[in-house]
Amino acid sequence: MGLEAKLQQDGFITTTIDSIIAWARKSSVWPMPMGISCCAIEMIAAADPKYDLARFGSEVMRFTPRQCDLMIVAGTVTYKMAQVVRRIYDQMPEPKWVIAMGACTSSGGMYRSYNVVQGIDQFLPVDVYTAGCPPRPENLINAVMTIQKKISKTRARDFQDIPMPKPETVNN
């Protein structure tokens, strides 16, 4: 729609590499649904016909981290689970973003207890925090849109320093 109107004549547009890459990236954010507890149900609700996350190009929930660029941590992260969440985050290819969905992941929420990590930012770099316990699907969609805004500001050279992934280390 927007693009075709400009392509009526010979069909070329001028833009920068940075902005076209950022535009492509932000319009097809593939989330990694790290569904742990209650928020996971609302995450499914956000993808269901009523709220339809597909309108924002993020309906392709991939359960393998290697195909994703956005991790939605949905649910209470315990100490035992933290190791798993981190391991999955490490397997995602760069560049990657993280949404802390809900109060538990943002700050521990209502769980002031021995086994709950009081905020996943203790071991993950979080880009967007989402309020609510659990957040309504609209709120999750808002978080995805915020991530999109953030992505649209990135430039290709921001990711120059990212090292190539190393082969996995093994315990011997």
């Binding site: 507890s37 209650c38 315990t78 798993v84 769980y111 086994n115 709950v116």
Partner: peptide, 25 residues
């Protein structure tokens, strides 16, 4: 145990009314 949030311990530390929202989860 990957989602063990310690409900039973927290229940001992709060009143009966405070625990109602926890039963939701």
């Amino acid at each position: 145990g990957y989602l063990h949030r310690g409900y039973e311990k927290m229940a001992e530390d709060m009143s009966y009314i405070e625990f109602i929202p926890h039963t939701d989860r």
